[in-house]
Amino acid sequence: MNLLAIIFVAILANNIVLNQFLGICPYLGVSKRIETSVGMGMAVIFVMTMSAIVTWIVYNFLLEPFGLVYLRTITFILVIAGLVQLVETILKKTNPTLFRALGIYLPLITTNCTILGVALLNVQAGHNIIQTIVYAISVAIGFTIALVIMAGIRERLELANVSSFLRGAAVSLVTAGILSLAFMGFKGMMTL
């Protein structure tokens, strides 16, 4: 599988949020403003790439040789949780405003399905280390793109004449549905 195909599919054809349903909770929660979305996107890119590398190493050098494949989920989630906690402490010191803006959604990255999803997908697809990194980065970029598009739309939705019941999460879910419809268009172009 050449890398270009991986990048194209991960970002457009099979977008992790809009086509695979992963990472919806932070997607809805953080996409209120573009700045927080970009901040969240950067955090996810960093954590996803780091965790993809570490999980690949742990899987191929620790789990497989000892035949402990059934421990896959628990080790991956432990690595991800550790990394997220690391990002959280460092971010709290270096960039407190972004830390408060992300608020609850930073620890929620741990349960963010995208990161565990990417780690498991990499292992299932049997990617080597380079493909793993490329796949992780492009999925994270796909996530960030979807997040920023959504934030752009939602900022305009604030002024739109939305009925009071549909305001907030309901209208953003419907918008995400339409966005997902658009991304479905890419599906036919190229498949892994």
Binding site: L166, G177, M184
Partner: peptide
């Protein structure tokens, strides 16, 4: 499909 799920849940939230 995926869009259907989003839209259904959105309308359910509104309801």
């Amino acid at each position: 499909t995926a869009p259907g799920a989003f839209i259904t849940l959105g309308i359910m939230l509104g309801f």
